[in-house]
Design a binder for these strands. Structure first.
Lengths: 168, 168
DNA sequence: CGAAATTGTAACTATAATGGTTACAAAATT
DNA sequence: AATTTTGTAACCATTATAGTTACAATTTCG
C-alpha cells in the first residue's frame, strides 16, 4: 500500500527530540540518525512546525526542538500533521454514472473508509511520543545486548552515537 | 498517504459481480463501469482469482464471476487478496545503528504499526461484499434522485447502464 | 475444422508521490 | 563582518500504479 515512510520518520524525529530534551537539534544531526538527507528532514520539520509540534530557529546556535509536552503529544497529532488524508483512496477517475453500481459505489466506499480511518485514529490517539521513548529504552539496554551479544550496544554512547547525542 | 485506489476498485468489481449474479462479466464490461482499461481489470482479477475470490474463463462466452458467497466474503478478504502489506511503512533506509533512538525505533514502530493494522483488519472483517451491495441500493433509488433531481437515475437502466448490466 | 471472442500476459509509456541532491537567500550568533 | 543554520526553490531519481498496445492460448459456435 504505502510506499511511504513519512509517518515513521516523523515519529523518529520527534522521539529524538524528546530523548534529547530542551536542547535544539540541527537538521544535520537528525538526518544522521534517520539516515537520510538534511533537507528531507527540514521539509518534514516544516510540516511538524506548522502543526505546532516543533519550533525551529535559524542561526549558528539554531536547530529544532519540541514545542509540546511529549507526554501529551499523540501519534494522532503526528499523523494529522502530515496530512496524509486517509488510509485508502477512492477511484482516481470517477466510475460510470450510467451503471447502478458505479454511480453509488463511491458514496458507500466513502463510509467504509471513514470507518477505517476512525479505527486508525483511535489507536494512534492512545500512544504518545513519550510512550515511544519509554519503549525505546528497554530495547537499547537489555534486549538488544542479549540479541546481538557482540557488545555493539552496551548502554553507553560510542562512535557516531556520541556524535549525534552527546552534543545535545 | 495512499495514491492507491486498488482496494476501491477491487470492491467495486466484486460488487458488480455480486449484483449481476452467476452470469460471468467480461473485463470490458467491468472496465466500463470502473471507467478504466480492461487490462487493468484483468490484472486485478488475477489477484482476486489467486485469492480464490473469483473464477474466470477464456473463450467467446468467457468472463469472470464470484467464486464465493458474497455474504461470506469480507472486505478483509479483498484487502488481503491485494497484498498491500500494511497501512504504513517503516524507514526506507535503516536508521543509524550508532544512535540509541535509531537502533530501536524500527522495533517499537513495528509494534505500533501492527496495532494499527489489526484495527483496520477488524473493521474490514465486519463488512461483507453483500453489505456493500445492500448499501448501494438505497442510494440508487431514493437518495440519488433527490440529490441530482435531473432524472438521470430513475431506477431503470438506460444508455450504457443497460449495456453494462442488461447483458448480464 | 476454422472463425470469432475473450482471457492471460508481456512490454512499454504515463502519472504521481516521495526521496535525494545542490544551491542559495534569510536570519541569528559570535 | 564572518559563520552557522534554517527556509526554500529547483531539479533528478525511485517506486507504485495506471494506462495502452499487442498477441498467443483458450473456448464457443457455425
Amino acid at each position: 500500500m504505502s510506499t511511504n515512510s513519512r509517518f515513521a520518520v516523523a515519529v523518529h524525529v520527534l522521539s529524538l527530540m524528546a530523548w534529547s530534551g530542551e536542547e535544539p537539534l540541527k537538521s544535520e544531526q537528525v538526518a544522521e540518525s534517520v539516515n537520510t538527507n538534511a533537507v528531507v528532514i527540514r521539509r518534514m520539520l516544516l510540516d511538524l512546525a506548522q502543526a505546532g509540534l516543533v519550533v525551529s530557529q535559524t542561526g549558528s546556535l539554531g536547530g529544532s526542538r519540541l514545542a509540546t509536552d511529549p507526554a501529551e503529544t499523540t501519534l494522532l497529532d503526528v499523523y494529522q500533521a502530515l496530512e496524509c488524508g486517509g488510509v485508502f483512496s477512492l477511484h482516481r477517475q470517477p466510475p460510470s454514472r450510467d451503471c447502478p453500481v458505479g454511480v453509488n459505489i463511491e458514496t458507500v466506499l466513502g463510509e467504509v473508509l471513514q470507518e477505517v480511518d476512525s479505527a486508525v485514529e483511535k489507536v494512534l490517539k492512545n500512544i504518545t511520543i513519550d510512550d515511544v521513548v519509554q519503549r525505546l529504552k528497554p530495547c537499547g539496554t537489555l534486549n538488544n545486548v542479549k540479541k546481538n551479544s557482540v557488545g555493539k550496544s552496551n548502554g553507553r554512547l560510542n562512535g557516531k552515537a556520541a556524535k549525534v547525542l552527546e552534543t545535545v
